[in-house]
Simulated scan of single mutants.
Amino acid sequence: MSTDDTNQVDALKTETEPFVASKLGSKDHWDNVYGREINNFKDNGDIGEVWFGEAAATKMVSWVCANIEDEDARILDVGCGNGHLLLELAEEHYTNLVGTDYSAQAVELARSIALSREASITYMEQNFLDLQEVACVAGDEKFDVVLDKGTYDAICLKPKDSDDVSVDQSAINIYPMSVVGSLKDTGVFLITSCNWTEDELVSRFEPYLECIGRVKNKSFQFGGVVGQTVATVAFKKRT
């Protein structure tokens, strides 16, 4: 890790931990979830839950279609779950799609669904908090686009220890470095979150990434303040 990277991580560490750790941040939880969904898919063909719903996924797909003209662009979906997002991109004729998840059950489910739909998508296990694994998956070519729909949210809820209610701040700090390590110099990162506002996402990734766009999602009003149920923000690597 370079001196600049170390300084950026230290800067992130000064932030207060905003959440209490949750089972949503644990690998065991997602292994169990996708284990059940594998059985559901085998029994009745149900691909399972679309995280944040169809509307949020559609917004992300629409953004990619509007901004990434090359249908052979190398696209990575981090924490792909059942692979729904990449299936939608395959329908839009994108051909170089990779999905990763740290849950072997999620990868098994995604592969089964893609096979049933004759979709050519590569799925593999990956610990996105292991920079060596990140480099291995990215390869020398790296990715034109990295997508995240809820994975950063789960990482922000990851427990520091198995029985600890405090979040694993080191995991939160490593995540943006993994995004940068996965992207080409001209690559873009598109993230959807339900835990963070647009401005919070911009602030948290600012040391590494520059905001290039925001996607309007379903809004609500409370106490005279207008907000969005989820936030979707696009970034590029800083030069």
Rank of each mutant, 00 (worst) to 15 (best):
T3Y: 05
D5K: 12
K13C: 10
K13W: 15
E17G: 09
P18K: 13
A21V: 00
S22M: 03
L24T: 10
W30N: 06
D31V: 13
I38A: 03
N39I: 13
N39T: 13
N39D: 13
F52W: 08
F52G: 09
A55E: 09
A56N: 13
K59A: 15
N67P: 01
E69L: 07
A73T: 05
I75Y: 00
D77Q: 05
C80W: 00
C80Q: 04
G81F: 06
G83S: 05
L85P: 01
H93W: 06
N96H: 03
D101Y: 00
Y102F: 15
A110N: 01
S120R: 07
E125Q: 15
Q126M: 15
D130S: 12
L131A: 03
G139Q: 02
G139I: 02
D140P: 05
E141V: 09
E141N: 09
K142M: 07
T151G: 04
A154R: 13
I155Q: 12
D163R: 07
A171C: 12
N173M: 14
Y175W: 14
P176D: 09
S178L: 00
G181M: 04
G187A: 02
L190Q: 01
S193G: 12
T197P: 14
E198I: 15
E200T: 13
E200K: 15
R204S: 14
P207S: 06
P207C: 05
L209K: 04
I212S: 00
V225Y: 09
G227Q: 05
Q228S: 14
V230Y: 07
V233E: 05
